[in-house]
């Protein structure tokens, strides 16, 4: 049965139904509905716990502790708060712990504003935290996907023992759409080989990210990168819309992909063969599909609610074979289909 839900609330309910009944977070707009929802629901669930942490730094470290026990846990925040979590995300990756972080992007830099933006792409996909690590980044484009990709995030986190971020702009958090949720989502992962549950009848487990010796550290990083390579091979996800015969390929994710879908229809009505590629995983990035389309398309246009961040991954994917242009709005302005159409026409 479909229900009308806000993105932030829908993803929270999905997380709970995926067994993530431990939530730690700190208030920040535009994602407060997540914490509020969790604070209502979790105390009523056996074994559930909600804590309003003192800072985002504490939130992510509470997640670190909670997932160390093998249970599912999550936190959420928005841009300035996600900045504070970067230390913890690096530690989660370094200690190979499965955790889900929801990032509902707002305007920046600095305090910026609370309007929707996509300017934390670099932060999410290119590190943000320190060291040689990668985080899986999922980008929903509808309230339904806010729930589906949150469930997927827990599965991928558990499967690869790696932090996973669900990243959306403020619009997706705030908007309501019909959504269909299952009663529960299975958790088939057994973490008893490493989880900290007390050394009863076994040797103690240790969770750490320290490797003092240079060769030992390098071996460990290589092991991580073998895992990241596997994730790139197996978990890259994207959606294509009318790309088969497209001269113009527009690349957009999240809410902007919906604007671009409308723009593609307008362009097709004008006789311009436009199509869209929508990355669903921002890392790993769907490079192969863009490289392939570079053989047939005339040019690419990356469209974002930022001054141009994902566009660099489009350029890297296309490898200079075709021109890659950019159209973006920022500050909380959402591009309109007409603007995207104009941006394409300008390059024809």
């Amino acid at each position: 049965m479909k229900v009308l839900m806000k993105g932030n609330e829908a993803l929270s309910e999905a997380a709970i139904r995926a067994g993530a009944t431990l939530y730690f977070g700190y208030p920040i707009t535009p994602q407060n509905e997540v914490g509020e929802y969790m604070s209502r629901r979790l105390p009523t669930i056996p074994g559930g716990a909600y804590i309003q942490a003192e800072t985002e730094v504490a939130s992510i470290n509470m997640v670190y502790g909670a997932v160390s026990t093998g249970r599912r846990a999550m936190t959420s925040s928005s841009s300035p708060g996600i900045s504070l979590m970067m230390e913890g995300i690096s530690y989660l990756a370094g200690a190979e712990l499965p955790a889900v972080v929801v990032s509902i992007m707002r305007g920046g830099p600095g305090l910026g504003n609370i309007n929707p933006e996509q300017a934390d792409y670099f932060q999410a996909t290119k590190g943000g935290g320190h060291g040689s690590y990668r985080m899986i980044v999922l980008a929903p484009a509808s309230v339904q996907e806010m729930t589906d990709l949150t469930v997927l995030a827990f599965d991928l986190a558990d499967k690869y023992r790696n932090p996973v971020m669900v990243i959306a702009d403020g619009n997706l958090g705030q908007m309501m759409e019909p959504v269909e949720l299952k009663d529960s989502y299975p958790n088939n992962y057994d973490h008893s080989a490493w989880a900290l549950t007390g050394a009863k009848g076994r040797k103690g487990h240790t969770i750490t990210s320290i490797y003092l010796d240079a060769d030992e550290m390098e071996d460990y990083i290589h092991k991580l990168y073998r895992k990241y390579g596997e994730i790139e091979r197996v978990e890259t996800r994207h959606e294509e819309f009318l790309t088969q015969d497209a001269d113009v390929v527009i690349v957009a994710y999240g809410i902007v992909s919906r604007v671009v879908r409308s723009a593609v229809e307008l362009l097709r009505a004008e006789g311009i063969k436009a199509g869209m590629v929508r990355p669903i995983t921002l890392w790993p990035y769907p490079k192969a599909v863009l490289r392939k389309l570079a053989e047939t398309a005339t040019f690419f246009l990356a469209c974002e609610m930022s001054m141009g961040q994902m566009v660099e991954d489009v350029q890297l994917s296309v490898e200079g074979r075709r021109p890659v242009y950019f159209y973006g709005r920022s500050g909380g302005n959402v591009p309109t289909p007409a603007e995207v159409v104009a941006a394409v026409r300008q390059r024809m």
Binding site: I51, M62, Y64, G65, V67, R71, T197, I210
Partner: peptide
């Protein structure tokens, strides 16, 4: 220590401890 062990980021041990204890109240 011949127990379960976790290494925390600088200063964050009480937050990590909070997570562990809330997830598994039976642990010490």
């Amino acid at each position: 220590f011949e127990t379960d062990n976790v290494q925390a980021a600088h200063g964050r041990a009480p937050a990590v401890g909070t997570g562990i204890k809330r997830a598994n109240p039976d642990s010490i």
